[in-house]
Structure formats: C-alpha cells, structure tokens
C-alpha cells in the first residue's frame, strides 16, 4: 500500500484535536477515581446526557451549542453531586467494584430515559452552525472547524481544571484526598464534600465533552457503550488517577485510531488500539503514569 504522508499528517492532527475532546471526558473519570476510588461507568452515558441537553437547548431555545454549555455544565454539576450523594456515598465496603456495578445501572437508567424522551434516532448537534459545516486546510487534508474549536474548548477547560487543582484551597484539599484519604480526613478536610464536588466537576466536564462529541459525530442513547469502553481504556492506559496520563493516553489513542483509519480501514482503528493497550499493560500493568497499584490487592 502506498503511504500518503499528507493523509497521515492530517490524521495525526485530527487525532490530536479529537484526543483533546476525549481528554475532557476522561479527565473527569480519572479524577473521580483518584479522589474516591470510584470507577464511574456511567461517564459515557453522562457524556451522551450532556450532548442531549445541549441538543434540547439548541432545538428549543435556539442558543449556540458552545453557549449552551453555560446552562448544561452547571446543570450537570448538580446532577453529578446528586448522584454521588444518593448512590456512591452509601457504598461502604468493596467500594471500587460496587461503584462499577452501581454506575453501570445508572448508565442503563439514563439510556432508558433518554430513549423515551428523544427516541433512538441518531442526531447531531449544531447541524446549521458554520463551524460544523466548514473546514480549513492543514497539512494536506481538510479538518472541520468544529474539531479545532472543540480542542480549544478542551484546552481552556483543562487549563481551568489545572488552576483549580493547583492554585486554590479546594485544589489542595482535593489533592490531599487523592494522596491519602484517611490522612486528609485526619487533618480536617471534609472528604465527603470534596468527593461530591469532584464528582460534580467530573460530570460537568462530561457535559462539555458531550457537546463537542455530539457536534463531531451523530449519536443515540445507546452510544455510551462504545464511548465508555474507550474512556476506560484511556484512563487505564494513562494510569488510573493520573490526569496528565489521561491526556497523553487520549491523544495517543485517537492518533492511533485516525492513522489506522486512513492507512488501513476505519473499522480496525479501535481493534488496533485495544491490542496496543493489552501490549502496554502486559509490560506496565499500571499504565503510562500510574502508580504501581494495579497489582496491589
């Protein structure tokens, strides 16, 4: 097969842009794990829920999808806090494993509710917005403006998250909780409050990711299975609980996916990624930047 370097460089650029969007969704997931030892399998369904909220705002209030985030992100923050208080907090023993089961059930309920409200037809966000329909030339290929804008949105929000984590009092409390939950409790940090807020932040980042996801491709209530399997793979590859790892892994995964798509075939992109994931985990079970906890019992 003749390799077309223009196509490949275009695929790399597209991979970096979409990788940024995935980093947005995965950062919430890995942050929640770091703080609470909880794996939120509903993150995929919450991304889709965020996308549908933006869709509803766009359809009924006729607001630009980027501006719709001003409504959907606070709403999803509250939903996240409620979910944490109602379903995650009561879990006392074997928290990680039970959180997977509970959030899987939450994902099913969300999928069922979305299916009833929005039907199971595929929809796409911003169908009439210029940045969704127009593209610009980079390297040798055309890339839609929405990918660039989505990447910029991700960069801005992740920078905001960085400032929140490393420059505020709450950020100190959160990072202390990641380091050692019991010790954080002993020095007077209200870890339950930190947990609820962290979960809310993760879910509101899912809403932003969902908007970008819904504008770059069509989706339906059942899209979350595919999404969550990719997000879990990303945070495992990056190292559970590591924010930087999640970002690196997102971009790595999407670049691999896009390059495989143009060089070989789109249907094999995900398979190639999962195979690479398995190889990486055989050598390094804790992922790129994770601490060696994967083998600890």
């Amino acid at each position: 097969m003749l390799l077309n370097w223009d196509l490949i460089s275009g695929a790399v650029v597209l991979g970096i842009f979409t990788g940024g969007i995935y980093a947005l969704m995965a950062s919430g997931l890995t942050l929640t794990f770091g703080v609470m030892d909880v794996i939120n399998v509903a993150q995929g369904a919450l991304v889709i829920l965020g996308a549908y909220l933006s869709y509803a705002v766009e359809q009924h209030l006729h607001i630009d999808i980027f501006l719709s985030l001003l409504i959907t992100m606070p709403a999803m923050f509250l939903i996240g806090m409620l979910l944490e208080v109602a379903f995650i907090r009561p879990l006392k023993h074997e928290r990680t494993v039970f959180s997977i089961l509970v959030t899987f059930a939450i994902a099913l309920v969300i999928e069922g509710i979305l299916g009833k409200i929005f039907t199971t037809n595929f929809v796409q966000l911003g169908a009439n917005a210029w940045y969704v329909n127009q593209s610009f030339k980079i390297g040798g290929t055309y890339v839609g403006y929405i990918y660039l804008f989505g990447f910029v949105l991700a960069a801005v929000l992740l920078a905001g998250l960085y400032l929140l984590l490393y420059r505020t009092r709450f950020g100190f409390a959160l990072r202390a909780t990641v380091e050692n939950r019991t010790a954080a409790q002993l020095i007077g940090i209200d870890v339950e409050r930190v947990s609820a807020i962290t979960f809310g932040i993760g879910v509101s980042l899912a809403a932003a990711g969902g908007m970008a996801f819904g504008a770059t491709q069509t989706f339906d209530p059942g899209s979350h299975y595919d999404l969550i399997s990719r997000l879990l793979a990303i945070i495992i590859l990056g190292g559970m609980g590591s924010l930087a790892g999640a970002m690196i892994a997102s971009i790595f995964m999407l670049v691999v996916f896009n390059v495989t798509s143009v060089v070989y075939s789109p249907t094999w992109g995900t398979v190639v990624f999962f195979v690479l994931l398995s190889v990486v985990l055989l050598v390094r079970p804790q992922g790129f930047l994770g601490r060696a906890e994967a083998r600890r019992q």
């Binding site: 990680t96 494993v97 997977i100 793979a233 495992i236 559970m240 994931l277 079970p285 994967a294 083998r295």
Partner: peptide
C-alpha cells in the same frame, strides 16, 4: 496479570 478494577476494565475491553 492484573487485579481488581484493572481486571474488570480489561475484561470489558
């Protein structure tokens, strides 16, 4: 080769 939650996620994959 992995344990606990990493095992769960790998089996999902």
């Amino acid at each position: 080769r992995t344990r606990r939650h990493v095992f769960v996620v790998l089996t999902i994959a």
